[in-house]
Design a binder for these strands. Sequence first.
RNA 1: GUGGGUGUAGCUCAAUCGGCAGAGCGCCAGAUUGUGGUUCUGGAGGUCAUGGGUUCGAUCCCCAUUACCCACCCCA
Length: 421
Amino acid sequence: MLIQAPKGTNDILPEDIHRWQHVERMFATLCAQFGYREIRIPVFEHTELFFRGVGETTDIVQKEMYTFEDKSGRSLTLRPEGTAGVVRSYIEHGMSSQAQPVKLYYNLTAYRYEKMQKGRYREFHQFGMELFGAADPAADAEIISLLALFFERLGIGNLSLNLNSIGCPVCRTDYNQILREFLSDRIVTLCETCRDRYDRNPMRILDCKEESCRQQVKQAPALLDHICEDCRGHFDALCSKLEIMGIRYAIDKGIVRGLDYYTRTVFEFVSRNIGTQGTVCGGGRYDGLMEACGGPKTPGIGFGLGVERLLMEMESQCLEIALPEPPLIYIGSIGDRAIAAVETMCCDMRRKGISCVKDVMGRSVKAQMKYADKMGTRYTMVLGDNEIESGRAALRDMKSGESKDISLDSLTDRLLKFKEA
RNA sequence: GUGGGUGUAGCUCAAUCGGCAGAGCGCCAGAUUGUGGUUCUGGAGGUCAUGGGUUCGAUCCCCAUUACCCACCCCA
């Protein structure tokens, strides 16, 4: 093998494509029903955007981005997620002057340089959604209910919805103080970076990878227990809306996500069936993001959904997805006259919208029929000199094996009727 | 970034205690010269992951590399 696909990338083969097309169609339909419109953004952006939009302190920005210089020396980066690009587009196209709220959805690939394993790839597919302009908990509830309906329509059961609130910058300032007090007599046991974090951003200590730090932090007070009154009200309102809609959830005080610009609601839908990379969908509110990217102060909420993981989950639940329709008819040919006649017939039928296939290898009738069978066409017909002379041929139904002698002139009309049936 | 497992045909896998590499499936062709599915026969297809070492001889033993799979971590 001379050249393989780069590590962490996958070909999506014709055998599997119907699964992808199915969930893509379902998602697009659902979004439209909720009044969301599709947006498509570039695969690469200025690196600076992700510094601001994802956060310079995050793992994603610090070690996982595909960053390169183009020929004029600009620093560009393959998008590691969708939200930053959508926010940039919102600002750039002045969407703040459109009717509010602005509701957008997308289906895109994202790129992260990570050590790969099950459910984690360097190029992966994400469905996502952003709702701009709405600060009300009703917006949070709508996004979550849309997801719940999406999974329901796909027939996916038993995903658990985990919910948390990480408050606003105000409660985080207070919480940081509480955290510092908790950590003050343990600071000597923390790693060097964490001792540094103690003053600048103590919350980052909570997800330090050093084993010793993780031990120290286990008993730390939870942010959810210390959010301000407004944030508490927002969270409680969301919870009660979910309850009214009959959406089951669990509160998980451990969900934090990219802390820098996220505010209040954070949530994820998690599977237990698809390995350790069980987060099928993660999202949250980011009321500070638009401003951080240089736009007008605008609340926002959204999510990203891993399509590979979604399909894995569906596979693990043995959900059947209908195969695509094969071509309606295969028309075989024997001899030069028939080959010419079949070419003309196929041109004509295709123009009328009938899917038909013919030989392009000059093979034997037997080989042609075998091929038709493997493709699964519903009908076959073979033309030779006799059929050209008489203007009649046998139309065979491949499932029943029965043939019917029909005139070639009537073939197109018949097939158009079969197609509708 | 850390650890464990596996690399033999397009796919799923054998075998060789170190001596010319195998099956099933798939693909191609044939079985009274013009008709698929079942059956039978034949054929094509391998740098035995790559590079070094030991050996008369390595797909097999040793070392390194690489890829894939899985876990830690992080996330979608």
